[in-house]
Design a protein around this nucleic acid. Sequence first.
DNA 1: AGCATGGTGCTAAAAAATTAGCACCGTTGA
DNA 2: TCAACGGTGCTAATTTTTTAGCACCATGCT
Lengths: 127, 127
Amino acid sequence: MVTPGALSRRERQIMDIVYRLGRATVQDVLQGLDGPPSYSSIRATMRLLEGKGHLKHISDGPKYVYLPTRTRNIVRKSALRHMMDTFFNHSVETTVATLLDMKSKDLTDDELDRIQVLINDARKRGR
Amino acid sequence: MVTPGALSRRERQIMDIVYRLGRATVQDVLQGLDGPPSYSSIRATMRLLEGKGHLKHISDGPKYVYLPTRTRNIVRKSALRHMMDTFFNHSVETTVATLLDMKSKDLTDDELDRIQVLINDARKRGR
DNA sequence: AGCATGGTGCTAAAAAATTAGCACCGTTGA
DNA sequence: TCAACGGTGCTAATTTTTTAGCACCATGCT
């Protein structure tokens, strides 16, 4: 298995952008980066990522649109798992606590309601 | 600001171990890595991380114990934020949903209760 | 048709990260 | 006391990543 952590710095930056956008052209990545390296550099790195199996591309007219090879859901879970292992001591509770602490100002009552429902669902599923 | 993403692959691996353990000696890191490079390599990289301001060290007898410079809480939040931005479209709801989907089997009723409480607290805090 | 534009592949150079190796210092136990 | 051990700093070599540059192809416009 190719561990996600095995990516270089630039590779990870690029993957993050692709994941954020869902799909991305070289131009998209160029815009997403802050200290943008040359077009050529990004292209090379993306080709490399494709070689490693992290990206694939389809053609949109003359240009390439890159897509992640692993589904959004798989990637989400493995990112979450890694983060919980690293920072949250594997604890869902601590993770949620931090999340809420961070975002409570932005959360609507509706959204909180929906989250309550999610938890009740999990409760049912658990047994 | 030194963005966390600016770390190299090995640097990130090492930081992850330090965060997971809270503090770490070179030996701790050595054991934490799977394809362990030489002692010397790790040491060099940790010194480098110290130079960049990500780690500091205290002396425990003759040996160094490395600690992260940023507090656990700060780091947790910024990791969460980055992950939500990248994979979850900034959505707390989606994040929690994935979390529960992933872990529902491991969650006790007690823990779910406590999470419910957290949400109610957030509700109060929000207004 | 001819040319400008904007994409691609490939190769080689530059920069950064990773590693090993050696010299040195403090502690410990015979 | 004085070797052996386990730690450190530093330097230099290797490997990997990152970058630029050039040649080429398709598209669209004059």
